[in-house]
Design a protein around this nucleic acid. Sequence first.
DNA 1: CTCGATGCAAAGTATTTGCACCTAT
DNA 2: ATAGGTGCAAATACTTTGCATCGAG
Lengths: 155, 155
Amino acid sequence: MSDKDIQAEEQRFREYLGSKGLKFTPERQTIFRRAFATHKHFEAEDLLLSLRQDHQRVSKATIYRTLSLLVQSGHLREVIFGEKHSHYEHVHANEHHDHLICSSCSKIIEFTDEAIERLQDEVCKRYKFKAESHRMQIHGLCEDCRGGKTFSGPT
Amino acid sequence: MSDKDIQAEEQRFREYLGSKGLKFTPERQTIFRRAFATHKHFEAEDLLLSLRQDHQRVSKATIYRTLSLLVQSGHLREVIFGEKHSHYEHVHANEHHDHLICSSCSKIIEFTDEAIERLQDEVCKRYKFKAESHRMQIHGLCEDCRGGKTFSGPT
DNA sequence: CTCGATGCAAAGTATTTGCACCTAT
DNA sequence: ATAGGTGCAAATACTTTGCATCGAG
């Protein structure tokens, strides 16, 4: 995602806030930019620490509140990897993908598969279900880890 | 799942415990039976309340400890629906399924789709990934909740 | 100026753990 | 007998909330 794209997204976030009578504060800008500066999954705590390292002080509460807004505005997507807390990833405009999660090294591989997407639509049709979002994860061992067979934990 | 099957599973759980030097206590039996008595998803708290209603007293700690054992023994599967806590479902021997989750009424519809399963295997092959388990969820509105709403699809 | 936003600390949830006593093997 | 199990309450981990103050629109 280019800087220009990020700028555009920031503008869109701004407009989203405006349309809801909410404000675009410096804190929200800081959080927005940091969330889009990284291209991997992160948790609320990661973001907090990352900002702290650069001496940007935003309270934990504001981070949670803003992440929630960014999910509502469609800028972030919540992904849950079997842990008890939320992970986020930013939405590169209309690009959906799913995840392969290595249970040994925790590596996360993203993939897309048109055929699977189509079949999901069919399943929905079968059940007269109106899909809003979906997520699919395959847990197992990645190429590197099947090799040495390092076994480290459950699913 | 028939009573006989459940008996057999209980026996298997007993053996699993034995093989690990663990004990088959009355509490574990109680929890095992209750977990298999219901055929829908449940949370730790549900199980606790259900037992309480029948005047079966098992501590919350023991429930958590036992559910964890049942996951390890392969009797339960953890399913996570985007909420912050775990849901469980018992594993009817080798029958895998996925979920449609209604965001309005929280109804959960189970489905299986051979074609999707096959495509998942292909994705794994593509990434040289050794799958151990996978989960797929589609969030949206169920037939009832779409209610009067006009069809949003084509035609 | 006026709502909405922020920080902080306290309150919630869901789950785990330390410990003294208990029990299946 | 003894390793492991149990209940309880306290501790965790993550997230939300109440409130006084602040600041964007």
